[in-house]
Each structure stands twice: as structure tokens, then as C-alpha cells.
Design a protein around this nucleic acid. Sequence first.
DNA 1: CTCCGTGCAAACGATTTGCACTATG
DNA 2: CATAGTGCAAATCGTTTGCACGGAG
Lengths: 130, 130
Amino acid sequence: MQLRMTNQREMILQELKKSKDHLTADELYERVKKKMPRISLATVYRNLEILSEAGMIGKLEVSGRQKRFDWDTGEHDHIHCIQCHRVDNLNLNRKELGLLSSETIKGYRISGYRLEFSGVCSQCLKKNRK
Amino acid sequence: MQLRMTNQREMILQELKKSKDHLTADELYERVKKKMPRISLATVYRNLEILSEAGMIGKLEVSGRQKRFDWDTGEHDHIHCIQCHRVDNLNLNRKELGLLSSETIKGYRISGYRLEFSGVCSQCLKKNRK
DNA sequence: CTCCGTGCAAACGATTTGCACTATG
DNA sequence: CATAGTGCAAATCGTTTGCACGGAG
């Protein structure tokens, strides 16, 4: 399965990178639609999925209902507003973490943070060996 | 608006605590239904929401589509399996974070972690003052 | 008795999918 | 040309809500 660079795909990628924001599928859809009125929301969803699997963009499954997509694939953390749900990037020395809670970061009044490790659990590792 | 302790609410709470797991609403529904066949899924949703607002349980909006609920309201972090989506608790000294990535924790083969600060952004803080 | 809580079904919002058509490589 | 990608509409999934009835305090 090889990737084709269609106009739609290119436009989606371009608009996401241009935005410098963490957009949801439908926010991106609205933007792309201005330049490509006949594009479908399903196409946006499909491409965002494909592009994130290909590592060309990042997928964020943060708090809130909608997934957001990140133009920046480098390793970085996020900070999100519990009120308006915007998401900003954060580049911090992870060793300083302990010090940072309940301070102010990037203009945010911090109310907390969530740390979530991911991996494969022992049961699944065992299952994989079979 | 005061909380009434109905049979349904009590059962939901009890089953969640008993499970020692991070269940989704419908997983919990299936368990409670065995003892209370006429309970509705909506009731489970409503009670999980109410109980988490009351601070009697924790609400997790982790990766994946479904919310999960935590019987343990103490402060702790989480680790989740990218394969079977189970979630386990983690109690770690947050200052050691920098050292932990890409090691093995609690039997998991770690593939990464996500850190997410929450708070109110400067724009919202400004808005609130008005 | 007063309302908070319940069960049911219908509504909802985000995302996914089947299908016939289009266009990239 | 082969087959990945598209647009459309319908389907799906998790969750929420309106309503009339039931039960806790």
C-alpha cells in the first residue's frame, strides 16, 4: 500500500502546518473547504488518520471529545485549557517536572497535569509470544 | 441538590470499587446488570458522572474512545496498554520521571508517555476578568 | 409528599464505512 | 491501467437527554 499525494491530501497537510495549531478534523475541514469546496469531511478524517500513521503529523487524544492533530511531529508535551480546550505545545526539561506543578507555564494558570505512560502490558506481551 | 443513595448508585459504586480496575461505563453496566437486570445504561452513565463530580470516584479521559472510571480517588498516575487498552495505576516519585522513559514499569514494555498539563490559558483568564 | 433518580427510547456528536466513481503513479 | 483515494450517504459507537413514572428522605 503506497501513499499517493493527492490534491486533497496535500491541502490538508498544508493547512494543518500553516495553522500552527492543534486542530480537530472538522476545524481543518472548514479551512480546507474554503479552497476546495467539494472536499468531504470523510476525506479529512481518512487523511488525518493515514498521515498520522505515516508519521507525517501527530495525533493527540487529549481530554475532551474530539481528537486533535499536530503539525509538529517532534517530541514535546502539551498544555491544554480546561475552559476553551485550546492546546499548546510545551518543550520542557522533563527532569524539572516535579517543580512545575501548580505554577504558571506559558501564561496558563496551572490546575494540574496528567501523566500517562503507554506500552504493552505483561498479559499482552505473553499473548504475543503465542 | 443533595445526593440520594439509591440501590443503583450503591451497586455501581460497589462494583467499581470491587473490580479494582478502570472500567468503562458499559463494562460496569454489564457487571451491575447481573445483579440488577432492569438497570439502564443511562443510569450508569448518570451515576458515574454524578459520583465523579462528588469526588467519590475518579474520571479518566485517557487515550481511546471511551472514558474510564477509577475507584481510587487518591493522586496517582496511570499506565495504559496500547494493545488491550487496560489501565493500571502507578505511584511514582514524579522527580524520577526523566529516568523512567523507555524502561519497563510494572511489567509493561514502555513505548512512550504523554504528559498533559491543564489549566486556564491567558486568553481565558483575560476573558474571566471582564 | 417532594423531588431526585430511574428506565426507556430517541437524539446527538464524532467518526467510520460501503459503494460507485475519479485520478494518481 | 491498476488500484489508492474521493464524495456521498448511511451506519456505527459512545454518550446524553426528554419524559413519565417510581422511590428515598
